[in-house]
């Protein structure tokens, strides 16, 4: 069964019809990427899955369970981790407190401590910054914290919204390395990226969004070799 399935999802942003019937699947262990231009509806798709944006029509299934009309905190409790666009680290909370927030739904203190140790094996830098306020971290560190925070939930699926945005090229490399590493640990990932080049390198499959609709889908290799995709998103002519 697919970890995540969207069936003909429509959503509005104010009066704008942002999603016009989105359908796709994410299978266990996959990295699936949504690529597309600004305003194509990539972030809205993730926010609709998390319940931050209400789907007006259609269904969102998590392991077969309909989560379309659940509030965000219940969707999180069912195993959807979301690394939001622009990192959205809590600026006045320390790194430790930010990570604790990620494990908000976990009551067992020892389990929280265990997960935190695991997260530090992936992001040792965060351990050094443990008592620093989130807002004082560098952009790359904030992105690491945002990912680490979502990992504290041990999500069944991790939604990542533009993790490379605003980062120096070297940091982009290392963020994608982390994504690959997480996936090898068994995390299913739905990745939204403007950096289609990197996204298609790391992903198994992908979907191309244009103005709220899926216009193309295929394996990452197929998409990377597709002339339309190359022209529009990979900067080739």
């Amino acid at each position: 069964m697919a970890v995540l399935e969207l069936i003909d999802v429509h959503a509005y942003y104010g009066h704008i019809h942002a999603l016009k019937g989105i359908s796709f699947k994410v299978e266990p262990g996959e990295i699936v990427t949504l690529i597309g231009a600004n305003g194509a509806g990539k972030s809205t798709t993730l926010r609709t899955i998390s319940g931050l944006v209400r789907a007006r029509h259609g269904r969102v299934l998590l392991n077969g369970e309909d989560i379309t009309h659940l509030p965000p905190h219940e969707i999180v409790a069912r195993g959807v981790g979301h690394v939001p666009e622009g990192r959205r680290v809590f600026p006045q909370l320390t790194v430790w407190e930010n990570l604790e927030m990620g494990a908000y739904t976990v009551k067992d203190r020892r389990e929280v401590a265990r997960r935190m140790e695991f997260v530090f094996t992936i992001f040792p830098r965060l351990k050094e910054r443990l008592h620093q306020k989130g807002g004082t971290l560098s952009g790359g560190e904030q992105q690491m914290l945002a990912i680490a925070r979502a990992l504290m939930m041990q999500p069944r699926i991790l939604l990542m919204d533009e993790p490379s945005m605003g980062l120096a090229p070297i940091l982009v490399e290392s963020i994608f390395e982390v994504i690959r590493q997480l996936n090898q640990h068994g995390t299913t990932i739905l990745l939204v990226e403007q950096n289609a080049h990197m996204a298609l390198q790391v992903a198994h499959r992908g979907y191309v969004l244009e103005t709220g609709r899926i216009v193309l889908e295929g394996t990452a290799r197929e998409l990377a070799n597709n002339p339309q995709v190359q022209a529009a998103y990979l900067g080739m002519h």
């Binding site: 319940g51 931050l52 939001p84 407190e97 908000y104």
Partner: peptide, 23 residues
């Protein structure tokens, strides 16, 4: 834990919801 959640909601309501906080 409650206080942390209060501060998280104060700083960023939608993101707090994404942490599983019932805002």
């Amino acid at each position: 834990r409650l206080g942390r959640a209060i501060r998280a909601v104060a700083q960023d309501r939608p993101t707090a919801a994404l942490m599983g906080v019932d805002v």
